[in-house]
Every structure is written in C-alpha cells, then in structure tokens.
Design a protein around this nucleic acid. Structure first.
Lengths: 152, 152
DNA sequence: CTGTGTGCAAACTCTTTGCATAAGT
DNA sequence: ACTTATGCAAAGAGTTTGCACACAG
C-alpha cells in the first residue's frame, strides 16, 4: 500500500480568506465562475465533508446560491478530475463525494446513509495479493458497514 | 475480524443432480418455480459467479430460459434475502451479486467491470476501530481496484 | 469579443411497482 | 381451488446530454 501524504484541500482553506477559493480553482485549471466558487466554498471550508449531488444542491439552494443540479454534477466531476474530491462507492444509485482525498477508509451507517472517515493510521491491511497479469492496484477501498446494535 | 466458515452454495450443488436445486429453494422457503429453478441452476452449478441482473438475464435468454428482467431482479433479491447470494457494492448504478456468501473480498477491474474473489485467508485487517455509539459492524467490504499497468 | 460554463428539459440507465395472467401445491 | 410468482409496461431514482444563453478573461 502506498503511503502518500497529501494535504487535504479543506485544511488548505479552512482559515484562509474566501477569495482564495478562486486561486484554488485556477490552480486546478478551472475558471472560477460564480457557481464553482460557491460550491467550492461550501465544500472546502469547514472540515471533511461527504456529499452527494443532491445534498450539495439542496445546501446551495438553502444558501440562496442559484445553481442547477446539472451544474452540481458537472462541478463535482470536474473537482474530482482535478483531484480536489474523491468518489466513494457505497451502494446502489447514489454517488458520494469526499473532500478528504488522502488515503483513508470509511464507516457507512446503513440506517442513516451517513459516511464517516476512519482515521488513516487506524487500519492496516496485510497480505494484499498481487494484482493479476498486466494490472496494477489503483486503490483499495475499505467500507465498514454499521447497523443498529439491537438489529442482530 | 470474524472467521466464519461457511459452505458455499455452489459447492453444495456442483456435483449434485439438477433436481436438487428444488430442494435448495424449498429449504430457503421459496417455491421452486421454473424461473427460480432455472436461475438457481445457472447461478449455483459451476463455481463462484458474479452477476448483475442484466448479465444473468442475458445468460438465461441465451439458454432459451424464458424469464423477464423483472423476475430476475425479484429472484436475485429473494436469493439474497435467503442467504444464497451476497450483494457487492462497486459503483454507480449496477448492483453485483456474488454466489460466494462467505466472508471474502474482491478485486474489481475498472477496465472490464469484472469482479474477482480474493481468497478469504489472504487479507487480514488490523486495527479496525470500534463502531460508534449504539452501532455494530455488520460487515467489512474490501474492494481492490485494478487498472491497466500502463495507465499510470 | 471569444470561448467556456450554465441551465433547462429531454434522454438514459438501472431498478422497482401495479396489476392481470400463469403456475405451483 | 387457493395462493404465490411471473410478465409486461409504466413509473421512479439518479445521472448525463444537447443546445441556446450568459458570463469570465
């Protein structure tokens, strides 16, 4: 397993001036449009976040940021491509996006649908087999599923 | 990590008479209808399998088993509920079903969309954190994502 | 100005559902 | 017979796409 120390984007911004969001975007090769700046601000100021397109869209609406759902999807994928976000596969339809792009794993609460980070150092995986033939391991996802205590 | 030895269903059937599929279904509380018997036969005779509703449906059609896609979905969920199958969350829309219901992990080839089992004993996870408050860990999913060697 | 981004609505994919018909016991 | 399962077609959720308009540089 690669141990790639990587600065979380939100740590970069949590105590910086709001205007710096524009720089972040420019640095990623993305034009700092109103919508992108607004969404980046929602995402990258205020700790690690796990959003879906829908939750982010609702949040933007609640804060009176006019953004269409299609643009939220576009933006989430652009941010992901630029390395500012990471996709987390959980189940079925919904795609989750994580503002923490460093190497780490997740709890997933099957009751509430909530994702939580597991601190990077906590889990260690041993005995990982070699990738087959001409393949390379691109990533190892670990998802610890949670249920109510009484439910089993 | 729990080490729960569990007999795979396909091991149960791989060298048994075809008619015994009916017993398997009855034992699971499912009426052995034509469609269910046919699908169970496709699934549980011939080693571990990873199917989606679509691939199983196509396979059934190819073998001239008349079954609707809706019934394939129903049946996959019924089998899962009965413990004969296990769902594997990989990404986006598609749901994969695994005939190996024992505790094990997966390779996922992002090029071909193919799932492969990783032998149970190979991987060991250490330092798994406690579940929060009133929660219990129901399962730990490990997905090792593969890409072409040259693609990075 | 010029090119890229946005918003809308329609299209698309995978999955679920309602209801009449068919099949199992 | 009585009950449960199936099949179809329509509906549903999440996501993507095409194209005219709007905005950033």
């Amino acid at each position: 397993m690669m141990h790639r120390p990587q600065l979380s984007t939100q740590r970069l911004l949590s105590e910086t001036a709001p205007g710096d969001v524009a720089k972040l975007l420019r640095g990623a090769g993305l034009r700092p449009t109103r919508q992108r700046v607004a969404l980046a601000h929602l995402l990258f100021t205020g700790g690690d976040r796990h959003v879906t397109a829908e939750t982010l869209h609702e949040e933007a609406q609640a804060r009176k940021v006019p953004v269409s759902l299609a643009t939220v999807y576009n933006t989430l994928h652009q941010f992901t491509g630029a390395g500012l976000l990471r996709e987390v596969a959980v189940e079925g339809a919904k795609t989750y996006f994580d503002t923490n792009t460093s190497n780490h794993y997740h709890f997933f609460c099957e009751v509430s649908g909530q994702l939580m980070d597991i601190s990077t150092g906590a889990i260690r995986i041993e005995g990982l087999p070699e990738a087959p033939d001409g393949m390379t391991i691109s990533r190892v996802d670990v998802l610890v599923r949670l249920v109510d205590k009484r439910s089993r």
